[in-house]
Design a binder for these strands. Sequence first.
DNA 1: TCCGTCACGCACGTC
DNA 2: GACGTACGTGACGGAG
Length: 479
Amino acid sequence: GIELKNLNFDGEIASYLLNPSESKYDMLNLLNQYSGINTSGIDADDKNGIAALYVQKLDDIKRNMLTEINKHGMNELFEKIEMPLIEVLSSMECLGFKVDAQILHDIGFELSEEIDKLTGEIYDIAGSEFNINSPKQLGVILFEKLNLPVIKKTKTGYSTDAEVLEELSDKHEIVDKIINYRQLVKLKSTYTDGLISCIGKDGRIHSSFNQTVTATGRISSTEPNLQNIPIKMEQGRRIRKAFVPENDEYVIISGDYSQIELRVLAHISQDKSLINSFVNNEDIHRRTASEVFGIPMDEVTPLQRSRAKAVNFGIIYGQSDYGLSKELKISRKEAKSYIDNYFKRYSGVKDYLDSAILDAKDKGYVTTLMNRIRYIPEINSTNKNVKKFGERLAMNTPIQGSAADIIKIAMVKVYSRIKKEKLKSRLILQVHDELIVEAYKNEIDYMKQLIKSEMENAVKLSVPLVVDINVGNNWYEAK
DNA sequence: TCCGTCACGCACGTC
DNA sequence: GACGTACGTGACGGAG
C-alpha cells in the first residue's frame, strides 16, 4: 500500500556500478571507499554507529560516487536505467507469479513413483543399498565394486558428474539408471518440493530479484530462483504448467529476444558478415555452418548446424579449442579448425575480441553498450590459467552485459507504459532475454504489441532486435 | 555422546 | 561466460 516516490540516489547501486565485482555494498564499505574518512578504527559490529556516520557523511559519499559515475560516462545508466529499475523489480517481487500447487503435487507424485522404482533397480544391480545421492558412496560402487574405469577425478575423489556417467553408459546397465535417477531427484527436490514450499498465502511465489549481485549487470533471482525453471527436457518443462495467471481473466504473455547476444556481438564488433546475416534475417546457425564448413546454406546438415550453434555459443563465451572439443566430443584439432575457420570468415569478430582483451589489459576494465564497467584483474595474472580466464571474461562481459543493459531498458519502458496507461496487465518476471507479463484478457493484443515494440526498440543497433511473442494459459504454453 | 549449525564441494537447473 | 539451490560430508561447539 506504500508507493515508492522520488527515488534518485541509492548508494548500494551507485557503488555496484563503480565496481560490480564487490561482494558486499554495506555502509561500512561505502564509508571506507567514498566518504573520504578513515574507517580503520570503526568497530564492524557497531551497526548503529556505522549507520549514524553513514547518514552524516551521505552528502560526501553521494557526491564522490556521482563524480566517479560521471567520469565513466555512466550517468544515463545510473539515472535512466538502474534507479528506475528499483521500482520495477520491487513491483515484480510484490506481484509474484501465481502457482498451481496441485499441478506441482501431481508431478511430484509421479516423480516419487519413478524414483522409488529406479532406486530398487539400482540397489539390485549394485547388490547392496547405498545413498545414491552421495557422490562419495556412488563412486565406491561404480569404480571399486563394479570396477568401471575412472574418467575424471575431483578434489575429493572420483567424479561422477553427468559427463562421466555419459561416457560410462554403455559399459554397465546401472549407469543409465543413475543418470535417470539424478534427473528425477533434481526435479523433485529443487522444483516440485522446492517450489511448493515457496508458495505464499496468496497462492503466489514471490522471488527476490537482486540488482547488485552479478559482475556483468544481469539481475539474479533467489528464494526461489525463477530464472532456472527447466525447459530443455520435456519432463522438466512440464513444471512450467504450474505457473499460471491469477484467474481466467488473465493470460501469460512471454516476449523473448531472438539471439540477443549474437546481435549485440554483431553491433559492437561491426563485423560485416554477421551484420549482414541479421539484416537479412537469416537462420544464424545455418549461416555459421555454411561459412565454417564452406558449403552452401541449403546443404547444411542437422549435425553441421548443431555444431555451428556450439561454435556460436563458444564465441560468446570466449571458449578455447579445448572447451569446444569437449562440448562437441570431437578432437581438439578439429575444434581448432572450426574456430580458425570462423575467425577467417568473421574477421571483424576476431578483431573485436582481440581489442576487448587489449582494453582489459591497458585500462584494467571492459565496458558495455551503456558504459557499464567491469574490472578484470585476472588478465594480468602470472598464472596462465587465471590469465586465460581473464581473457574470456574480457570477451564475454561486454556481450552478456550489453544484453543485460538492453533488457533493463525494455523493462523500465514496459513498466512505465503499463503504469502511465493504467493497464491491468503487469510485468511479473525477467529471465535474462525474456519478459513475462500477466496480461488482462481485454488487453492481450495491445500488450503483445506494447511488449514487442518496447523490447525491439529499447536501443538502436546496427542490426534489428527481434522479439518473439507467445501467449498461453500458463508459462509452458507461452513458448 | 548426541544434536544442531556451518562451510564447503559437488552436481545440475537456466540464460 | 553468468548465476542459485539441494544434498552429503566433516568440523565445531553446546547440552546432556
